[in-house]
Nucleic acid binder design. Structure first.
Lengths: 251, 251
DNA sequence: CGGGCTAGCTGCGAG
DNA sequence: CTCGCAGTTAGCCCG
């Protein structure tokens, strides 16, 4: 137990020292900004990090119930109402979270030295890069497109050219393709067709596709290419693709 | 400071008691599942909640760097290697997070009684419901569509009928409309056109729209309807719409 | 359980 | 700054 008046300076010091601050207590929370919300009294955790991310965690869910990135944080002990107000605010967009503590069970700032960044494998970017090395497993003679295309880099996953000289725009999805993915590909194909006045093919590469997405893809005259990939090992991934060659058009 | 061997039973007890468990210490984290990741040694917080959500928080970002919903949690003190392994796993999809602690600075389980659910205002659902009450501010004679449409409830935001008997499919966005929103509306319009063999209009209702989205919308023969809304007060929100009537087609 | 979609999405990267 | 998009998206709701 920490008294509310004691808490005020402790919070201020921890925040200015860029510590990871944990406050647990009974509070209610009001938010106003892009939307508005109210959370009535209950016991929760307030978590403030070095980058001024501000989060209220209930004892459920991965994500905080109220939150703000890059918050300006002010703390004020209200003697008249016997409560401690912790306020996070920012502009652009203008937003405010007010946390009003009635009691505090626990309060501590932690100095967390952590200079490591996560290394993630199996992202869509990584997949696309792998695929670009060898497109022939998709179709004989398919290779990266060499020409100039006024397309913002990174928008289209892969641009290729087939044996007949058609441009092939390829959208890669690391998980089951949905209606969204088909719409996206359709968009790219249409935009490309307008720019280049030749035949453009649209190819969706994914491990699976929903039934509705498949129907829509066929309506749009796009093509689906099923593929599986191994997360653990880049080599295995490409080999896996090659092994799949025979059954690629199974849906 | 808590010794690693002491930590094992403490964690087990807190987890089985559905407490919110906070462990802070030096650890490395390996994840394998939908993707794969490695996070080298550093000081972080492990946060396990009553619903078995499992999260590793660095001293930055709102979101955990590694996480799992509904985890099966096992704890094992490894005397040989002088480390404590906390493992979260689940199937479908099969995933594993292994957290290996070298030292623990802090460990505590908190009983958090919190029976409150958040009340959120200004969601898209809420907006759609408000709008449905009176569509005439968009266009004279526009009213909710009465006929039977084999459309899954909740997919299309609003279905309306205009003075000429056209079906009007309305997509509502609470923030600036993007290419995605236009694709979505286009999708609905096409599907509806196929079902009903009459003219279908597509209307995008949003406070703003990006330049590219506007171009695409025009290409598709869709219509944009700018509107602003007040979050705080439902009445004010509708009044706000009415007041905007004169300038609605400003982009 | 899968499909489809919103989210106060967050976070990233390019122009 | 905005735009566009991926995400181990999460979380919700409906068939």
């Amino acid at each position: 137990m920490v008294s509310l008046s004691e808490a005020e300076p402790l919070i201020k010091r921890a925040v200015s020292a860029n510590e990871m601050l944990v406050v647990i207590g009974n509070c209610y929370v009001e938010y106003f900004g892009r939307a508005a919300s109210k959370l009535l009294n209950g016991k929760r955790m307030l978590l403030i990090k070095a980058d001024k991310s501000f989060a209220i965690h209930q004892n459920k869910y991965l994500r905080p119930i109220n939150y703000m990135m890059n918050a300006d944080i002010t703390v004020k002990f209200n003697a008249a109402n016997e409560c401690l107000e912790v306020i996070a605010s920012k502009r652009n967009p203008k937003e405010t979270i007010k946390v009003t503590f009635n009691s505090i069970d626990f309060l501590q700032g932690f100095k967390l030295d952590d200079f490591q960044d996560i290394r993630l494998f199996g992202s869509e970017d990584e997949l696309s890069a792998q695929l670009l090395d060898d497109l022939s497993f998709i179709e004989n003679g398919l290779k990266p497109y060499k020409g100039e295309i006024p397309f913002r880099k990174g928008v289209v996953d892969i641009l290729a050219e087939d044996e007949k000289g058609n441009i092939v725009v390829i959208e890669v999805k690391r998980r089951k393709a949905t209606l969204d993915a088909v719409s996206q590909l359709h968009r790219y194909k249409e935009q490309l067709s307008k720019i280049k006045h030749k035949n453009v093919r649209g190819l969706l590469l994914a491990p699976e596709i929903t039934v509705n997405a498949m129907k829509m893809l066929e309506d749009y005259g796009l093509e689906f290419f099923k593929f599986d990939f191994e997360i653990s090992n880049p080599k295995a991934r490409i080999k896996g693709l090659q092994r799949k060659q025979r059954t690629l058009f199974e849906v």
